[in-house]
């Protein structure tokens, strides 16, 4: 199953994703979809490097259903991280779009 690398930004805790150009982006839609195990390992190395450079905290991979746009995480936890609290649509990423 395809995966995405995520973490929280050190400075403010914001949920971020690794994009294909190596940047950390706030929107899941802009994240790089990781298809293979080798790509996943390479992404984790990038994550560890970003942790060392005080950019992010605790990088990890999670599974997504990649049936085109939008990307949808398999687990509810990641759905909520990608949007914000389900009980407060005025807060989190969902409030910005």
């Amino acid at each position: 199953m395809p995966q995405v690398l995520t973490a929280n930004r050190l400075l403010d805790g914001e949920v971020v994703y690794l994009a294909s150009d190596g940047a950390w982006v706030e929107e899941l839609a802009s994240a790089a979809v990781i298809a293979t195990k080798a790509e996943g390992e390479a992404a984790l190395v990038t994550g560890i490097e970003a942790e060392r450079n005080q950019k992010i905290v605790h990088a990890y991979l999670f599974e997504v259903i990649d049936t085109g746009v939008p990307l949808r995480p398999v687990k509810q936890r990641e759905v909520i991280r990608a949007a914000g609290p389900t009980v407060r649509s005025d807060l989190g990423k969902q409030a910005r779009s």
Partner: peptide
């Protein structure tokens, strides 16, 4: 922590002693 003198493993127990957690969104 912000300059990197402390890494997260070193900082985490210090922030927890001051009531600071890292949750899902922030």
């Amino acid at each position: 922590r912000l300059t990197g003198e402390l890494n997260e493993d070193q900082f985490k127990p210090l922030r927890l002693m001051n009531g600071l957690y890292l949750q899902l969104h922030a």
